[in-house]
Write a protein that binds this DNA or RNA. Structure first.
Length: 492
RNA sequence: GCCAAGGUGGCAGAGUCCGGUCAGACGCAGCGGCCUGCAGAGCCGCCCUACGCCGGUUCAAAUCCGGCCCUUGGCUCCA
């Protein structure tokens, strides 16, 4: 069975194949602000794709660009005392972003190339485009001539005749066609752009950002050219998969295709995967709209597993709504999964490996879970259905533990392996070790309180027993009474 | 205006490629029961009779075709 993906370029579902190695380019992050859950949605889906490709036996070369040259970055210079230049701001948010990525349990990309480290490659690519007649210099800036590239608009189905002007208004007079876009911008950040993005009053000294020497004079790379230059540098002329947010299809990705194909004559990306937007209050989550939840805040409040389970609740290509209800649902789904895993581990630990018990229901469900999970993943990464398969396994484990007089050792072992391989390795969920056997001081104290409570219960002093339970709940210890006495878990 | 992605139950969200096995995936919410001192967790069962609208093709349409309405995104920075 092969992986099928929805390809924006082909405009349909296509079978994905590659010869052992897969090159994946994920576009991208602009380090001008704290990352929010909308950005993280793309990262998550790229991460799961990466993990699934590895599961299928591919070697994945995974590149995620870091855009550290941008008007929004220069606009923040001076906001903090140690932000004296564009690079300081970029460096600061790059660190925040990488920390957020670690917190989300994302596989590391192979390379995180930065624009500031690829200016020579960018200039070289622009020179090639000029030589081949696809680009022209004008007043120290360089523009891509969209009329010279016949396929322009093929990715996003735009008709050149219908296109309105691209880019800053103050650069339009230099362009041959309004739809041409900048490859290189003369000078620093223009006053208009600086003013537009300013969040902070700089008084007289509006920062213009870093500039570089080029054959056309001092200037800065345009927005789109960096992705072409960096992906070609690190992954070659033709990528297997290019991923990005749906909001970038036009103009950004369209322009990438034009630049790259014009320069190399080769296909740029064999497949384009676009991740739908995360919506909050009926519109997309966005730094500029202000309706965002930062990754660190979400991780703090929900934890990585709930965040990942939330993302796994909707297909990558669809939009997804973030509401109290959808978060509550993710919390519940994760709770069921983690408890299912935990119960299986606990039951397994208490079972003799020579146990003769066999639970057909459990064993069959383990196998159907694995089959269902695999076909769901191969079916355009249907994560909700893949998660549903694991929830079926949870049900089977619960049934087994509830009903069986003697546990099925092999069945439980397979169940635990399935949770950890599919939920853990593929979906990136982190199943914690069960807390029993955890001989910490806190644990001993909880045990002590519970033994006092048990004595009260036996004496029929339920009010006192409930007070003790409430007190434990208040400090984050969940108490559950069971047939073999009370158990507890540390909440969160 | 043009381009794109969508519109499925009380919520959320699969299924649409390849028409029938599909309408009640999974989860949440609701109801009843089991278990429990109570609660939680869990188990069993039930309810809700949702495919935007209008046509067309077909023995058969959530699925294919046409038209329309609505939502979101893009055409300025954007995951």
């Amino acid at each position: 069975m092969t992986l099928v993906v929805t390809d924006t370029l082909a405009d349909e579902r296509v079978e994905f194949t590659a010869d052992g190695d897969v090159t994946l380019y994920v576009c991208g992050l602009t380090v001008s602000d704290d990352p929010h859950l909308g950005h993280a949605r793309l990262w998550f889906h790229a991460d799961v794709l990466h993990r699934w490709l590895e599961h299928l036996g591919y070697d994945v070369q995974h590149v995620e660009n870091v855009t550290d040259v941008n008007e929004k970055i220069t606009a923040r210079v001076g906001e903090r005392d140690d932000w004296t230049a564009e690079r300081d701001v970029a460096e600061s948010f790059t660190e925040t972003t990488f920390a957020a990525m670690r917190g989300l349990n994302l596989r590391r990309a192979t390379v995180y190339p930065r624009v500031t480290e690829h200016v020579p490659e960018i200039i070289e690519l622009i020179e090639t485009l000029i030589e081949k007649g696809y680009a022209y210099e004008s007043n120290g800036s360089v523009y891509f001539d969209v009329t010279r590239f016949d396929e322009y608009g093929s990715l996003s189905n735009q008709d050149l005749e219908e296109l309105e002007a691209q880019g800053d208004p103050d650069e339009r007079s230099d362009k041959r066609n309004p739809a041409d876009f900048a490859l290189w911008k003369a000078g620093g950040v223009s006053e208009g752009a600086a003013r537009e993005h300013a969040k902070h009053d700089h008084g007289e000294s509006t920062p213009t950002g870093e500039t570089w020497e080029s054959p056309w004079g001092e200037g800065r790379p345009g927005w789109h050219i960096e992705c072409s230059a960096m992906s070609m540098t690190h992954l070659g002329d033709t990528l297997d998969i290019h991923m990005g947010g749906r909001d970038l299809v036009f103009p950004h990705h369209e322009n990438e295709v034009a630049q790259s194909r014009a320069a190399t004559g080769q296909p740029f990306a064999r497949h384009w995967l676009h991740v739908g937007l995360l919506e909050m209050d009926g519109e997309k989550m966005s730094s500029s709209i202000g309706n965002f939840w930062t990754v660190p805040d979400a991780l703090e409040e929900l934890g990585v597993n709930v965040v990942r389970t939330f993302y796994a609740g909707a297909a990558y290509r669809s939009e997804q709504a973030l509401t109290e209800g959808t978060i509550a649902e993710a919390e519940r789904r994760w709770e069921r999964l983690s408890r299912g895993h935990e119960r299986a581990v606990e039951a397994l630990d208490s079972t003799d490996a020579r146990s003769k018990a066999i639970d057909d229901d459990l064993r069959k469900t383990v196998e159907s879970t694995r089959a269902d999970f695999e076909s769901a993943m191969n079916d355009d990464l249907n994560l909700r259905e893949a998660t549903a398969a694991l929830l079926e396994l949870t049900d089977a484990v619960n049934r087994h533990v509830e009903a069986a007089a003697t546990y099925d050792y092999r069945g439980l072992r397979r169940a635990v392996e399935t949770f950890e391989e599919l939920g853990g390795d593929v979906l990136g969920l982190q199943f914690d070790e069960p807390s029993d056997g955890d001989v910490t001081l806190a644990g001993e104290l909880v045990e002590l309180v519970l033994s006092v409570r048990e004595a009260e219960r036996e004496a029929g002093n339920y009010e006192r027993a409930d007070e003790l339970r409430d007190a434990l709940t208040a400090v984050g210890v969940e108490v559950e009474d069971g047939p073999d006495g009370a158990t507890y878990r540390f909440d969160g």
